[in-house]
């Protein structure tokens, strides 16, 4: 019986298979973990969330918007930001100033959605007097539920 001769092989290029393996793993990781095209209005740069051991991960963010609350340098009006009617991040006045207020904006986003929820992202050192008007606005806009964003240890 004739046995085929093994011909010597030659490397003509670097082996890219491990590179592709790793890059594919990275792509799959990004596809699973990262969120694309979802603008919730969260301002992750300027707010230090309070630490908590309790809490849940939100899987469905379709019915939610984020409201950022900061303490002002002076005055009694909290600095509130979120998304406007067109989905652009804006500062929103809480007190009635003749224009659109937080209640109006929440009512707009809520529409007829009874499951509409608000995620409050407030700074850990915020005084309650600045958070209170935001909660009252949520109640007036008949928001179904409020979630308080916290930081995992």
């Amino acid at each position: 019986m004739k046995v085929a001769k093994l011909t010597p092989t030659r490397e003509v290029a670097p082996n890219v298979v491990p590179l592709i393996d790793i890059v594919m793993c990275l792509i799959v990781f990004y596809m699973l973990v990262a969120k694309f095209g979802i603008e919730t209005g969260a301002d992750r740069a300027g707010i230090t969330l309070p630490l908590s051991l309790q809490g849940i991960q939100l899987t469905d963010r379709g019915n939610t918007i984020d409201i950022n609350v900061r303490q002002p340098a002076m005055g009694d009006e909290p600095l509130v930001s979120g998304l406007d009617e067109q989905g652009r991040p804006v500062n929103i006045p809480v007190a009635a100033t003749g224009g659109r207020t937080l209640v109006d904006l929440l009512r707009f986003h809520r529409g007829t959605n009874k499951d509409f929820k608000v995620n409050i992202r407030a700074d850990e050192n915020l005084h309650y007097r600045f958070l209170e008007p935001v909660l009252i606005a949520c109640a007036e806009a008949r928001v179904a539920a409020v979630n308080f964003a916290t930081r995992q240890p």
Binding site: K35, S52, V143, N147, R151
Partner: peptide, 18 residues
């Protein structure tokens, strides 16, 4: 460049806002 992560955040739920 385009993906955003919310890793490290979780939420305390309140069904009674005020």
């Amino acid at each position: 460049l385009t993906g955003t992560f919310a890793v490290g955040e979780w939420y305390l739920q309140s069904n009674m806002p005020m």
